[in-house]
Each structure stands twice: as structure tokens, then as C-alpha cells.
Design a protein around this nucleic acid. Structure first.
Lengths: 139, 139
DNA sequence: TCCTACATTGGACAATGTCTAAGTCAAGAA
DNA sequence: TTCTTGACTTAGACATTGTCCAATGTAGGA
């Protein structure tokens, strides 16, 4: 994640303690925290960090493409630091756990010309739903 | 839409004026209103209808499969009465207009076994994004 | 070390959705 | 037709998630 900090510095960001802890919270694989979860985890290291700063920082990270927003349930948005590898999401319908997955082939290609209504397409996001192994075996 | 009213009656629903106007508002092709929009349109015909009733009725219609919820922007959920024909959504990134579209082939098939992490898959929802013809020509 | 533009803070405010207690009414019974 | 009753509706309080602003603090260059 120091790569990220370096990229932020290169963009002229001031490296404050608050931005550092938010970046640290968003480190790892299959990380999809809500803003509140990011705030709670950041506050473990920096108790005085405010909600506004977390929202600001997340919004900035999204706008420069370092983090992607994920809306899987119509509730709070989630923030995914795996922004440099194109992927989709697999969500458990029962417990809500989220995995990053990579479909084979481009989902855009599945939409035939006559179903494009003259739109200029730029992307397709896919959410796969089902039961995770734990929830499957729990009946 | 009287088909829908008959199906609701068959399920033992009381056919109140409120439920009728909500059902009428949700009639048509490419209809994707938010709860507030449904309430505003319903209130044109039945001014005293409450927000709570609109939310209740929409939730009931979703739970019995007559309407599907659509979350395209992380803001308010939208309600789509086209529930009996499997489809996906095409959204304009600029103006937000939504079209129902039908991909060729099953998007589920694009996810290879080794990317399923032991999940039992049940569905895949796809959101295509791009510029609609009006927004494309507007630069 | 000092400046200052940029960042952070707390809290008010906004948008969307949920819940409850009290009143209302659709539809079957007589 | 009228009565009865349990399901339905209502207004408004409350909850969750997110945005905005004025006051204060501070990172990093001079």
C-alpha cells in the first residue's frame, strides 16, 4: 500500500495521518468495506478521525481511480481497493460476503447490436448471486 | 395491468384504492420509478395516499415477484414491473435513463468453475453503462 | 521557523427508508 | 343490506447513509 501512498504524493496530495490510515484500512484482497466500516477501523488507529474526512478521502480515491465503489444491496456503498484489476463481484444472498471474480470473456460482448438502442457502451458490471459454502451447508 | 390486479386478488390481497393506483403507476414498458416517484404519481390520482403505503405495497409486490428492484446508481432503489421477462439494464452514464435489454446467452455461463469459490450460483445481474443517443450527440 | 493553501472537524442538514399506534375499510357472514 | 373483524392505511417519529459548511489545524515549501 506504500505504492498507493507514493502515487498519492505524486499527485500532489498532502499525506496526512488521516489519509494514511484510510489507505491502510483499504489494503488487502476481497476488501469491501462500507464508509462506516472504514471509519470504525480507521478510528482504531486514529480515534479523532471524523466521518467527513473518511467520506472525503474515499470520494477522492474513487475519483482518481484508486478505489471502486460497489453497490450490491441498495444499502451503503462499499469501497474496493482492487481497482487496477478488472473484475466482477460474487455475493452471498444470505450472509452478504463478497468475493472478487473474473469472468471469462467480456460481458459487453453479450449485448447484441439491436439491444443497444443507439447507446455508446463503455462498461458492463456483473453481480453474481448465490449461497456461499457456509450458507449452503447451513441449509 | 388488470391481470396483475387479478393475480393479487387470487393471492388474497384486499384490493384497496391505494394498491390499485400503485399498480396503475407501475404499468408500461421501461418503467423504473423510485419510491418517491411512484408516490408522486399515485398522489395525482389519490392525493391522500401516504409514503408508508407506497413503500409497503412496493415491498409486497417485490416479495411476490411481480416487480423487481433495480439499483443502478447507489441512490434510491427503482421499481421495474417487467418482472415476468428476464432482462438486464442499460443505463446512460450522463442522464440516467434506463432501458430494459436482453443479452444473448446466459451471463452466469461466463463465470468459470474455479472462479465460483464453492458458491451455489442462482443469478447474475448485469448493468451496461454508456451514453444514450441524446447525450452522445450533446457532446 | 514561518506562511498559507489545503485538510480536518463537528454538527447541521438532506435523502431515503422503516416502524408504530391509532384510525379506517374491504369483503365475507348473516 | 348491514354488521363485523382483521387487514390496511395514515402521520409522524425515528434510523441510516451521505453531504455541506464555517471554524480550526497542519503539511510542506520558502
Amino acid at each position: 500500500m506504500s505504492d498507493l501512498l507514493q502515487r498519492l504524493r505524486d499527485r500532489g496530495w498532502r499525506l496526512t495521518a488521516q489519509r494514511r490510515v484510510v489507505a491502510e484500512v483499504l489494503d488487502g484482497e476481497h476488501v469491501h468495506y462500507t464508509a462506516d466500516e472504514v471509519h470504525a477501523r480507521a478510528a482504531e488507529r486514529l480515534p479523532e478521525i471524523s466521518r467527513a474526512t473518511v467520506y472525503n478521502t474515499l470520494g477522492e480515491l474513487v475519483s482518481i481511480g484508486e478505489v471502486v465503489e460497489v453497490s450490491t444491496d441498495g444499502r451503503a456503498k462499499r469501497y474496493d481497493p482492487n481497482a487496477h484489476h478488472s473484475h466482477q463481484h460474487l455475493v452471498c444472498s444470505r450472509c452478504g460476503v463478497i468475493r472478487d471474480v473474473r469472468p471469462s470473456g467480456d460481458p459487453l460482448a453479450l449485448l447484441p447490436e439491436e439491444e443497444r438502442f443507439g447507446f455508446t457502451l463503455s462498461e458492463a458490471t456483473v453481480t453474481y448471486r448465490g449461497l456461499c459454502p457456509s450458507c449452503s451447508s447451513a441449509g
